[in-house]
Design a protein around this nucleic acid. Structure first.
Lengths: 219, 219
DNA sequence: GTGTATATCTCGGGG
DNA sequence: CCCCGAGGTATACAC
């Protein structure tokens, strides 16, 4: 990793055009060749960046970064205040717990959370326009399509609506009803869902994990 | 801005839980107190981060970062290889050209691009479930709701469908027809749109800008 | 490669 | 605060 702090201006031309007037910023160059330009505040997102793979041509006054897609980043250097490099080696990577996949795994183990007598038919049931998270049958034998989100929002309702429309063409399944399951469901999403006859279930992730025997398989 | 390169492990607990095994990484602390931990490759996105505002408690062996939402980041330091600080001052910010807002401004100036005789009624017409980008009337006097995207995809069709459903409840407007305008429209979006009676218009941004007198107002 | 969905999305704007 | 929408979204994964 190479870290340069410099007074610089930056021009980007590619998916859009942008310009950064001269100021002091951090230029971060990673081992894979990607470049990010950070202001001293705001957020983790850089002001400008170029992902790998790209080509860096560096002279005294300017750096020109280009990539195969024809995007171009030009960094014009007025004054370099810091220029250090450090070998970092491989990163073992981030281990996550608590993402949607875990919620799906837990609900697949405990489908009764979605309603008495609900049992799992398949996870990631393919519809042709994307996979339904869970396909279940309820105590009456009716098919239930379950869309799982960390947060239930309008997009999730739209997604489930598309699946239901599709699944209800299948004579072996129909009539299929829909369930939106999420740790929290926004009011507007709830309104839209109920308007379309889709049930909403808020799931307590920690309680569900407590039900589990401790062995959590992702797939 | 403070830059620390250290052999460290990191634990995050908040919206999810995550753990980073020990390795050499960059810890970036910005003037507003936000913290990001970068590996030497991958992308511009850090492995872990905490946005401002937050509280940093630093001792020799570990940094503990907490925020008002109850999220917590713990950085355990094994070896510090670099620790530099640099005052950067205010950043004048990024100036963009070519985003959706520009396309909307251009189409508002030249609604005839969307069809002969089409004239603008309002930009950002409020529907109660979000604003329609442009509300127009065509040569026959029929209301036209226009959704503008840089890239036309299924989400845009869903969005416009929701608006149309809503607008068609208004006796002063109905029947309202829909137009999806974008620089490029994906095939699947086009199929879905046509299935719902929504027209698709691909817009040449540069040509449209050429039509303009050079004065481009965003709003 | 396209298509689809997720994300600690981030970020900004409006009510 | 919530809600909504845009993003050079990035990223992963299936077909």
């Amino acid at each position: 990793m190479r870290l340069v702090i410099a007074r610089c201006s930056v021009d980007y031309s590619g998916r859009l055009s942008s310009r950064l007037p001269e100021a002091i910023r951090l230029i971060m160059v990673k081992a894979d060749g990607c470049i990010a330009i950070h202001a001293d505040g705001g957020a983790y997102k850089p002001l400008n960046w170029m992902n790998a793979p790209n080509t860096l041509v560096e002279d005294e006054a300017a750096w020109i970064v280009t990539n195969p897609a024809g995007e171009r980043l030009t960094i014009t250097l007025a004054e370099v205040l810091l220029d250090v490099s450090q070998e970092c080696g491989e990163d073992p990577g981030l281990e996550k717990d608590g993402v949607e996949a875990h919620l799906q795994a837990l609900l697949a183990e405990h489908p009764e959370t979605l309603g008495d007598g609900v049992r799992l038919v398949r996870r990631e049931y393919q519809t042709g326009i994307g996979p339904v998270d869970l396909l279940c049958r309820d105590s009456e034998g009716q098919a239930v399509a379950v869309e799982i989100k960390r947060r239930g929002e309008i997009d999730g309702v739209e997604q489930l609506t598309r699946y239901l429309h599709r699944l209800n063409r299948d004579p072996l399944l129909r009539p299929v009803r829909g369930v939106l399951a999420a740790q929290r469901i926004r009011r507007q999403a709830r309104v839209l869902a109920e308007d379309r006859g889709i049930s909403c279930v808020e799931v307590d992730y920690d309680a569900l994990r407590g039900l589990d025997d401790g062995e959590l398989r992702l797939f």
